[in-house]
Structures are given as C-alpha cells and as structure tokens.
Simulated assay, not measured.
Amino acid sequence: MYSVKGVAKLLDMTEHTVRFYTDKGLVPNLKRDKNNNRLFDDDAVKWLIGAKNLKKCGMSIEEIKHYVDLCLGGDSTIPERYEIILRQKEAALTELEEARERATLMEKKAQHYLDILNKTIPDNTNPAKWGEDNMPQTHQNT
C-alpha cells in the first residue's frame, strides 16, 4: 500500500494532483486507513496511471471521470470508450496542425526580423513608427 506521498513519488505526480484526482472520483474504490488517509493498492495505482495518461492526451477531468465510469460499466462500454479516444485523437491532430501553422508563421516573422537586422528592409514592426501612409493592413508585421 502506498500513501499519497508514496504514490505521488512513484508516478511522478504532485501530492496535490493525487488528492485532486481521488477527490474527483478518478480512483474507484479508494481505500482509507483508520485516520481517513488515502491508501493506494496496485489497482488504485493503475487507475491513477490511467488518469495521468488520459490527462496527457488532453482530456479534461470531467471527460476522464466519464471514461472511468464507462470502464466500471464493463465491456459493453468499449465502443463508447473507443469513440472517446477517436475524438481525442482528432482534437490532438487539430492542435498539431495549429501548432505547425504557428511555427510556420513564427519562421516567417523571424526571417522578417532578420531582414530588418540585415538592413535589407526597413523596420515596419513597431506600431509607434507607423504613419498613416505606411500602416500595415494586418497585424502580421508585429
């Protein structure tokens, strides 16, 4: 059996996170000692690992709780759990594409600044220096 401190260290989580996850019901059938301190057996550790992994996948605590409840419902919930994972995968792919777009934009901005530093173009990135005649149409130069 592990204490909050022990399981936090074992799973590289904060004690606060362990308590929060248990308070939110992400660890079913959590055991407690005579002083009402949380005790984690191997099954409880597995639930915490599962919650930690789902959180890393971008799921909210509420979504993880729903997933836990489905797991407790048995094999008949596998199709719904599969759909949840597919939706999460799509969300992650969307975030990845948005991150690629941001990285491309930042590459262009860095090149723009390099051109300014090399004096191949004037500095048009400082709004304090914009006049009415040379104000950019969008914020892309900043």
Score class of each variant (00 low, 15 high):
N37C: 00
K56G: 01
L39E: 13
L70A: 01
I61T: 12
L114S: 05
L72W: 12
I61W: 11
G131V: 04
K119C: 05
V18Q: 06
S3A: 05
R32N: 02
K89D: 09
I116L: 13
G73I: 10
C71W: 13
M13D: 08
K89E: 13
E132A: 08
L96Y: 14
D23M: 09
L105V: 00
Y67A: 01
L26T: 04
M135F: 09
A51F: 12
V7D: 13
N134I: 04
K24E: 00
E15R: 11
D69I: 08
G131T: 11
G50T: 12
I85Q: 15
K34N: 11
N118L: 12
G73V: 08
Q140W: 15
M1T: 09
H139E: 05
W47P: 13
L93D: 13
N141G: 00
G50L: 15
D33S: 12
L96A: 14
T104C: 06
D69Y: 11
L54C: 06
Q111F: 02
I121F: 03
V4M: 12
E83Y: 11
Y82E: 08
T14D: 09
K46T: 04
N37Y: 03
T94W: 13
I64R: 09
A92V: 07
G6V: 01
E97Q: 15
D133L: 00
E132C: 05
T120D: 03
D115T: 07
V18P: 11
Y82K: 15
H66F: 09
A91S: 13
M106E: 08
G58I: 10
E107Q: 10
S60L: 14
G25E: 14
L39G: 07
D42E: 15
M135T: 12
T17W: 05
L54K: 12
R102C: 01
L30R: 10
A92F: 04
A92Y: 07
A128M: 12
V45F: 01
S76E: 04
E62N: 04
R102Y: 05
L11H: 09
G73R: 12
M1I: 14
R32H: 00
R102S: 02
W47E: 03
A91T: 08
G25P: 14
A44P: 07
I121P: 11
W47Y: 06
A92D: 02
N134K: 10
H112N: 07
G6T: 00
L30D: 04
D41R: 08
A103E: 14
L86W: 08
G50P: 08
I121D: 04
L72G: 14
D33N: 15
F20V: 02
E62K: 06
P127S: 03
I64L: 09
N53C: 03
N35Q: 05
R32E: 02
Y67H: 11
D42Q: 14
K129H: 02
L114K: 15
A128W: 11
Y113A: 05
V45S: 01
N37R: 00
F40G: 10
G58R: 15
A103V: 13
H66C: 06
R87H: 15
G6L: 00
L105E: 09
P28D: 02
R87Q: 15
I121C: 02
E98Y: 00
T77E: 02
T142G: 03
L70T: 03
M13E: 11
V68T: 09
E98N: 10
D75Q: 13
K31S: 01
D75K: 15
L105Q: 11
R100S: 01
P28F: 00
W130K: 00
H112D: 08
